[in-house]
Amino acid sequence: MKTIYKTVIGVIVMTIVGITAVACSSTKKGYTDVPDTATAAAKEEFKIEKSGAQMWGETCNRCHIAPSPADYNDTDWETISLHMRVRANLTENESKKIEEFLKSAN
């Protein structure tokens, strides 16, 4: 194999290993945590958090037309959400919020 290809593969592997290491070592508990310092709390007030409905419209449409919430029941949506989280490589936040929206709107 040519050296350039080996270099490209090396860079990709290093990047992914680095990302994985950072992810595993993260101590952040969840997306809803609010920092307790006054400054951070003030900043948090201005942070615009996307709704599940907005994510449903934006994320599902990347590949297919966004599904109708009424087409499945809550239990079905839980299974489909887990399947789609992995298939479409969604973040945990996207997957959870879309699932909550679908369950609330069906």
Binding site: I16, T20, N89, L90, T91, E92
Partner: peptide
């Protein structure tokens, strides 16, 4: 395979290896 995604506070990054 290992795969996943990161929320970068607006942008997102996904990977698989």
């Amino acid at each position: 395979e290992l795969r996943g995604a990161f929320d970068l506070g607006g942008p997102t990054l996904n990977y698989s290896v």
